[in-house]
Design a protein around this nucleic acid. Structure first.
Lengths: 239, 239
DNA sequence: CGAACCCTTCGGTCCGCACCGAACCTTCCC
DNA sequence: GGGAAGGTTCGGTGCGGACCGAAGGGTTCG
């Protein structure tokens, strides 16, 4: 048994316990998969992580008990999803710090498979990849978003969301705008309540569609026109 | 041996490995202690964490190898500090997520010892506690800092730093302003390059002094006057 | 009702690792 | 030079936990 000194205050055990939830390859793989913001069944995650169903079940139990996931049982299925945007942010932050290297795809096949994700994808509940960066940059160029002194919408930005018919959830403690480091672009894209609202609108309006059942998304023709109109994004620059 | 499925991409092992560095009580205690931004010797950290010197040495080796700490050897001493502000932010984020409870001090002694920290302290390289919050609020009230649509300095805020003679480091990729969740106040205070510059100035100008060798700081009389002049902070409201 | 399916619980195995004390190295000081 | 102090390396110990397969409980569907 280890000595408990007074200076070892109560924060360290809690920090270690939280980190311990991430500190397993299988659980990490589950959390990364769940970063798409959707609910997965226990079996899907087990296959995704490459472990037996019983093993995955135990891991999910720990993640739920630790407050990182919420579960929803429907019939014989157990759906789990990330508990909230704060957890998603934590996973993103850790992943961004863990993978500081820019990976060059080795083969043509890997390159094209990866590039669908690199072109555009969802990151929990907002847009990422070159698409997310292009939108974030366009907002910044039009002085709707301010990145030089921090990360915040401007008054013009608030008006733009209002005039575009994108309703912002200003309730709750979630920040309106937040920078989220993009894995592939290594630069921040728009996250927070505004990023979520924008992503929802873009998907609802049919400006973007999901590719298969993956996180990758692609811009539709309507979407390209709309983005050009609203943000002056050059259609040729869109992924 | 576990099967390595294709879907278990390269990110999960890296994420798990990084989290593993935090997932030990002793290492967590070291990282939290190092959050004061200063360099500690291996022996100090060993005593702080309540383990043998040999044990601490091994832990520090792992943290350095993992890129979380940098070391500097001087004579027979081994000084370690957090590698950079990104690491500090990661520790803060994890700690903030791990300790969602507000702890009520049990004894009078603990209360007074704790309240020095609660009144004002440094958090890596910026100010925290009620002092940090008071300054952040004052900046916000005077429209020098914008928190309602994200977290960024305003143009007036840039001018204020310039006119106050607080030089901002705008080089590097570090954001100028960033919100850092305050442990004791449960609200964000100013971090980032601006928070660091402000903290440095406040200490250099003698507006605040460190209490003993701890993280806690207290406002001097000169400091109280200066803060009232510059930011309109009510001296009575200062900790 | 029985079969197929999804998930969980339970035993049991095995590996990793946090820990300590002892020995050793280096630096500093008398 | 000798001794003290800070730090590291090395064996050895013990616990925690990740894993699997088998068995069992619900749920759905034929």
């Amino acid at each position: 048994m280890r000595a408990t000194r007074p200076s070892r205050d109560s924060a360290a055990p809690q920090l270690a316990a939280l980190a311990g939830l991430f500190a397993d390859e299988t659980r990490a793989a589950c959390l990364l998969a769940l970063l798409d913001g959707r609910a997965w069944t226990a079996g899907e995650l087990a296959r995704c992580a490459g472990v037996a169903a019983s093993t995955a079940s135990e891991h999910l139990g720990k993640l739920v008990a630790g407050g990182l996931l919420t579960e929803e049982r429907q019939g014989r299925h157990r759906y789990v999803r990330l508990a909230d945007d704060r957890v998603a942010q934590l996973v993103e932050d850790l992943a961004a710090h863990a993978a500081p290297r820019v990976e060059r795809p080795r083969t043509l096949r890997a390159s094209s498979a990866g590039s669908a994700m690199a072109r555009g994808r969802t990151c929990y509940d907002h847009l990422a990849g070159r698409l997310g960066i292009a939108i974030t940059d366009a907002l910044t160029r039009r002085a709707l978003l301010r990145q030089d002194t921090g990360f915040a919408l401007t008054d013009a930005g608030l008006r733009w969301f209002d005039e575009s018919g994108i309703r912002l959830e200003r309730a709750g403690r979630r920040p309106l705008a937040r920078g989220c480091l993009d894995w592939t672009e290594r630069r921040p894209h728009l996250a927070g309540a505004a990023g979520a609202a924008l992503c929802r609108h873009v998907l609802d309006a049919g400006w973007c569609v999901r590719i298969g059942s993956e996180r990758a998304v692609k811009v539709t023709d309507t979407g390209a026109r709309a983005l050009t109109d609203l943000l002056g994004i050059d259609a040729a620059a869109l992924p």
